[in-house]
Design a protein around this nucleic acid. Sequence first.
DNA 1: GTCATATGGTTGTCTATACCACTTTTCTTT
DNA 2: AAAGAAAAGTGGTATAGACAACCATATGAC
Lengths: 239, 239
Amino acid sequence: MIDKASPIPIYYQLQEHMRQMIDTGVWKPGEPVPSERDLSEQHEISRMTIRQAMTNLVNEGLLTRVKGRGTFVAEPKIEQPLMKLTGFSEDMRRRGIEPGSNLLQFDIVEASADASKHLEIEPGTDIYRISRLRLGDGAPMAHELSYLRKEGLRLTEEELQGSLYEAVETQLGMKMAGARQTIEPSFATEEEASLLTIEAGAPVLLLERVSRLESGAPIEYVKSIYRGDRYKFIADLER
Amino acid sequence: MIDKASPIPIYYQLQEHMRQMIDTGVWKPGEPVPSERDLSEQHEISRMTIRQAMTNLVNEGLLTRVKGRGTFVAEPKIEQPLMKLTGFSEDMRRRGIEPGSNLLQFDIVEASADASKHLEIEPGTDIYRISRLRLGDGAPMAHELSYLRKEGLRLTEEELQGSLYEAVETQLGMKMAGARQTIEPSFATEEEASLLTIEAGAPVLLLERVSRLESGAPIEYVKSIYRGDRYKFIADLER
DNA sequence: GTCATATGGTTGTCTATACCACTTTTCTTT
DNA sequence: AAAGAAAAGTGGTATAGACAACCATATGAC
């Protein structure tokens, strides 16, 4: 179950093992998990290492420690949730609109000052540039300009059709950790207006997103323009 | 500086000491902090204990560790997530802006068609209407028009100063479950423009939110206008 | 039965040490 | 001078042990 010879840290193996026990319901909310000393003896791992694994899960809110009593599986969170912002395709389908995509550009360019700042790389470094027109029932809904770090990636046009994130995770052997996204109102420029078949100066939503890997390194920087007259951002918030 | 005889844990004393060095600007963002081994010798504290203090600060986002290079004071985060179910005030404070509020209206009215639809009640039912101008560092940031179901609630002007959600949860004995929120761009009308001290036609964000109780019943319907030039919606997305 | 006490189990804190992986600097070789 | 190798410094992981603080339960005296 836990391989001490593995290059993967022991504490991490144990941590993920415990996470699985919780996720799969083998360990149920409110129930105590084995004590640190028990786990230490069972797995022949130092207690400090056990603690390192458990501390991470406590910080994530999956476990609760009570001095003198033990460590327990936390009740499912209501407090510190994650919010979901629906992706374009999913969002369109939810409204009964058929999503589509037109690839305008797909090439390798030198990173501009803007892109290099967000991707935290040196300006001039080679990066992927992907320019796409997003469609709803055939009509232009948004223009999306993505920049991806090139290192370690070998993208083809085919992969742009499928899930870009999956391709990245497979090729880099690392998972995406999350993203930060900002939304602000703006006016359509001449160029944007012609792409979206709207009038220049029409209200649009400017969306910027930086996605990061587990390592913390930014991998993707996206700048999108959404038609204000046709598109509404919907966010389901939990608490 | 650090008292080993104190009942307060050593790691905690060191942790708070380091926090102070950062808060007061003695240690500036981007600069390296003393290495773990240095601190260990200086304070005659085991390196593992030093690490416990620093790990907490890393988890809080105040420090950044880089293997092989050192530990650094993190760049201050200005962009904090908004998309949790937090109110305007909390959101502003997170960005280091002093929130304020001007109560324009607070009365009981009969539900309009629009409000009754979102609150899922009969049109004409009595509901609270709250019109507020939201301020950031004294300047108008948004206009917020809220409608709340009246049943079971007895709101006072004082409660509008504090957390509205808390008051609702206390009085109804039920927690808020979540909300659905839409965001779209628009132009400021004459009336909105004068409230927000911007020009008519300036870009604004129109936000609508329906908050629900655990029972599923909608309790609050909010329609807000945010200044586009001053406010950016920020969402932290997890996978 | 009731209350006080002992006892064993739990997490919390702390030490001292060791080795690894990575980065920067320094020194050596060419 | 440039290139390469070695050394020094950094955080990352792991061990074994110790004592403190706290909790529940069993055991005892009354």
